[in-house]
């Protein structure tokens, strides 16, 4: 792997999975990418502007926009929930 890049695994649910044509994607990102960078640059084009207002998790815990991503992280895209 190129030392200036890292690989992250992204999970999609509900209609976000429909938009991405799948529940899993692997992304190669520049080192230093934050969660917010990833959403804006790599996900928003497919998921639309509402995706900026959704929740995200990194490694099974809620994460903020400023979270620094690391090689091997698992990111889950959480569109508006509808349990019950």
């Amino acid at each position: 792997m190129n030392p200036s890049t890292m690989t992250v695994h992204t999970l999609f649910f509900s209609f976000a999975a429909d938009r991405m044509n799948g529940r899993h994607k692997t992304l190669d990102l520049p080192q230093g990418t934050t969660l917010g960078d990833m959403v804006r640059q790599y996900l928003e084009p497919a998921l639309g502007p509402d995706s900026r207002n959704w929740l995200y998790s990194v490694n099974e815990e809620w994460a903020s926009w400023e979270t620094q991503l690391k090689n091997g992280d698992e990111i889950a895209v959480i569109p508006p929930v509808s349990g019950g």
Binding site: F13, V81, G84
Partner: peptide, 28 residues
Amino acid sequence: IDRIKLRVPIWKKEHWGNGQDAWHHDPE
């Protein structure tokens, strides 16, 4: 139940009577 509906990452898809499907909160 109110907090489950608000916060827990669970999603429901409606199977409409006419045979179509739709995820709740899908703006389309």
